[in-house]
Amino acid sequence: MSFFERDLTTIAFCWRLERRDGVAIGFTTHDRDLDIEGLRYRAAPGMLPSAISLSDGFEASALDVTGALTSAAISEADLAAGRWDGAAVRLFLVDWEDPSAPLPLVRGELGNVSMQGEGFEAELRGPAALLDRAVVEQTSPTCRAELGDKRCRVDMAGRTRVTRVIAVPEEAVVEVASASPETNAYGFGRLRWLSGPNSGLEAAIVASDGPRLMLREAPVHPPNLGDLVETAEGCDKLFATCTGRFANGENFRGEPHLPGMDLLTRYPGAS
């Protein structure tokens, strides 16, 4: 890079964060905003990572960021709600006189974010983190696919619907205007908030009774009546459910009849 060879350098540090819901923001240590690759990087000296530790090993890189809450784009409430968990991160240097050729430094995604004083601290999961994944799947009596994915192949078009919240009888219970009449149709399913204070967040559904949905955890923010939500049916991943409810036994990704350590406890009267 030619801007490294000058007597008076014009180097600025930039970083881009993109949330899983598509929201992207950029920051730079320069004293004015920079437009790079279609995104405006806001001048935010307080957003400088205080420590970036890299190594030639396979452990996850550490990213320590201070002063993050000085930006209105990253609020404490959003961090606490997990909106930035898993966000894609790119860190690079740029010539602020001609920012058309950035020099990449680090890329990856943020792990779980924790509050640290006036900023946040997160693990940066780089490409080496992929090596932590299992090479082959382990056998299991339950299905290893997710309902509706490319291995399961159940059509979710008729099992996903957009509706509204009509009641909140308990902190972790909501009632919606329309739902599948099938018994416990949304058990192990998903609820995604499309409007209101929880917009963009997801919640796991433990069980359902008609339009009454029991969530695993209470919403981060108290929902409002009329909030728009998307509900998706769930599956308990048992072979009997796969064949009986979905008629999808040929795509079952488990080994329900393979003997295992619990073989003796599968029979009545076993002790």
Rank of each mutant, 00 (worst) to 15 (best):
M1L: 04
S2F: 11
F3P: 00
F4T: 12
F4M: 10
R6S: 13
T9N: 14
T10E: 06
F13G: 09
F13P: 00
R16K: 11
E18R: 14
R19Y: 01
R20I: 03
A24E: 05
A24I: 03
I25A: 11
R32Q: 09
I36D: 04
L39A: 04
R42N: 08
A43S: 14
A44D: 02
G46R: 04
L48F: 12
I52K: 01
A60D: 14
A60C: 10
S61R: 09
S61I: 03
A62V: 11
D64G: 04
T66I: 09
T66N: 12
G67M: 04
A68Q: 10
L69F: 15
A72K: 15
A73S: 11
I74C: 02
I74K: 02
A77I: 12
L79S: 08
G82H: 05
R83N: 05
G86P: 08
V89S: 02
L91P: 03
L93Y: 13
E97F: 10
E97L: 15
P99L: 02
L103H: 05
P104L: 09
P104E: 02
V106D: 00
L110S: 03
N112V: 12
V113H: 02
S114M: 14
S114G: 01
M115H: 11
M115Q: 14
L124Y: 04
R125K: 10
L130W: 04
L130F: 07
L131E: 09
D132E: 10
A134E: 15
V136N: 09
V136L: 08
Q138A: 15
T142A: 02
R144E: 07
K150M: 08
C152V: 08
R153F: 13
R153E: 14
V154D: 03
R161N: 11
A167T: 10
V168C: 15
A172E: 11
V174Q: 01
V176Y: 04
V176C: 06
V176N: 06
G189F: 04
R192S: 13
R192P: 01
L194E: 14
G200Q: 03
A203Y: 02
A203F: 01
I205P: 02
I205S: 00
A207L: 05
G210P: 07
G210N: 03
L213E: 05
M214W: 09
G226K: 01
V229A: 00
E230V: 00
E230F: 00
G234N: 07
G234K: 06
C235A: 07
K237Y: 00
C242E: 06
A247F: 14
A247R: 15
N248I: 09
E250K: 14
N251P: 06
F252K: 05
R253P: 03
R253C: 12
E255L: 10
P256C: 08
P256I: 04
P256Q: 05
H257A: 13
P259L: 11
P259Q: 10
Y267W: 13
G269A: 14
G269S: 08
